[in-house]
């Protein structure tokens, strides 16, 4: 079961998570420790990177209209900032006493804090990106809802003209997202639903066209054409609802089920 649910987050955090785990194990195995080297330059580099992240983070918050992002990101940034202070304190303590056990604990705590805070920040950012895709999916659902008012060929042309770019954008975004996920089951679910949407779209347009022609011709075939059209609309809508559901899943959801 992957720990990080996107390849981007995994690529950023896995190497540092590995290093922190090693340090924790070494600390537990050799409680008294060896003399620590001067870590002040390395800590200074971390602090500069933290300052830059905080600046970029608040710029992102200020430029976003996503209220959840505005709510979720500041605590993560504060966590990273606090953790960097722990690292500075640890480094100062170790310079005074390279064998200091409390300094080592502070170093571990600071490293874990950086890891946890950066992880929370990346998750908040990632969730915000997912919400952008969800909005596109919902706009497709809104277009599908107006299928029932399409009753002329002119309406159909306008409908197809409006629907096509939104569906294309949705499939492109969901396809990219699917490739980003580390969770194989979620990827397969998205692939399956996306494939269904791709296959059903021409069937839907054809169904609307048959309905329009039947309606103009009159007769008993109208009801069947309407039923077929509505059935296809329902199937496409169901697949998009499934895409929306899966996009919001993280690996943790399934762990909870287990």
């Amino acid at each position: 079961m992957p720990v990080f649910h996107t390849k981007t987050i995994e690529g950023i955090l896995e190497p540092v998570a590995l290093q922190v785990s090693k340090l924790v194990i070494l600390h537990e195995e050799a409680e008294d420790g060896n003399a620590m080297p001067d870590l002040s330059y390395a800590v200074h580099v971390v602090k500069n990177a933290v300052d830059n992240l905080v600046k970029v983070g608040y710029d992102t918050i200020n430029n976003s209209d996503d209220q959840l992002l505005k709510q979720d990101m500041p605590p993560a940034l504060q966590r990273v900032e606090e953790a960097s202070l722990y690292l500075i304190q640890a480094s100062d303590m170790l310079r005074a006493d390279p064998f200091s056990a409390p300094a080592r604990k502070k170093l571990i705590e600071g490293s874990r804090g950086i890891l946890g805070g950066t992880s929370a920040l990346l998750l908040a950012f990632d969730e915000s990106e997912v919400r952008k895709i969800l909005r596109i999916c919902k706009s497709v659902l809104e277009y599908l809802a107006i299928t029932e008012v399409v009753d002329s060929m002119d309406d159909l042309v306008t409908f197809v003209k409006n629907l096509s770019p939104v569906i294309t954008r949705m499939t492109k975004e969901v396809d990219s997202r699917e490739k980003e996920l580390t969770h194989q089951v979620h990827r397969e679910m998205l692939q399956r639903s996306l494939e269904q949407v791709k296959q059903l779209t021409p069937i839907l347009i054809s169904g609307i066209k048959i309905y329009v022609i039947s309606k103009q011709a009159g007769g008993p075939a109208v009801q069947d054409a309407q039923d077929n059209r509505d059935y296809t609309v329902q199937k496409v809508s169901n697949e998009i609802h499934e895409i929306i559901r899966v996009l919001q899943l993280t690996t943790y959801d399934e762990d909870e089920w287990d």
Binding site: T8, I12, L13, P15, V16, L18, Q19, V20, K22, L23, L26, H27, E29, A30, G33, N34, A35, M36, P37, L39, A42, V43, V45, V46, N48, A49, V50, N52, L53, V56, G57, D59, T60, V80, L87, R104, L107, S111, I114, L115, T118, L121, L122, F125
Partner: peptide
């Protein structure tokens, strides 16, 4: 995205810091 680049820099800097600390510890283990 700038935020991903900034996070990458922090992760790399933290990994380097922790690696230095681990190397010192490992000498004893």
């Amino acid at each position: 995205e700038q935020i991903l680049e900034a996070a990458k820099s922090i992760a790399a800097a933290t990994a380097a810091l922790v690696k230095s600390a681990s190397a010192a510890q490992r000498e004893l283990v």
